[in-house]
Amino acid sequence: MNGTAAVLSNESALVAQAVVEPAAFAALYDHYFPRIYNYVRYRIQDANLADDLTALIFERALQHISHYNEDKGTFSVWIFAIARNAISDHLRAQRRQRWFSLDAIWEWASNSPQPDELVIKDETRDELLEALEGLSERERDIIALKYGAQLTNRRIASLTGLSESNVAVILYRAMRRLRDSLDKKGMVR
């Protein structure tokens, strides 16, 4: 995955072309897909859901690409803002739905995972992602933006509205908590 964070040399031209010719968006898609998908996976554990959300993010980006203004920020910040909003919308809807769904009643009745959950969990099991669940939403977001989206602290700060220094502190604290969590599981050398 390393090296994908490099900015496309002709990004501005590709964006301008994609406004009139949707097929030109494919180059931007190829460049940003791994980072967007990884960012989503850091935030959402379910691989299938991550796929759907990634598709939604690119669909929204293509729909609104004519609204992108280069003077207001880089394309990477713009597309990750769309990604953040899509995930926030999803998590909000999920929280609302949990109050009214029958699954919530099932969860209250039984703490043990259901058989289908066990199968899905085994397929996409990742200890690092599981350990991330112990962190707060903000900490997960910062970690996802740093390692999934591969953004610098400056760009994370412009996305989140925090100062660069605060981003660094939150990231460091979150990583220490993550290390402690993995240490308890015996996964740290």
Partner: peptide
């Protein structure tokens, strides 16, 4: 040790798991 976790995260690429 904390930087080692960061190293592990930078090497992790989930995009190969994507079905779509």
């Amino acid at each position: 040790a904390t930087l080692d976790i960061a190293r592990a995260l930078t090497k992790r690429d989930f995009s190969a798991q994507s079905q779509q």
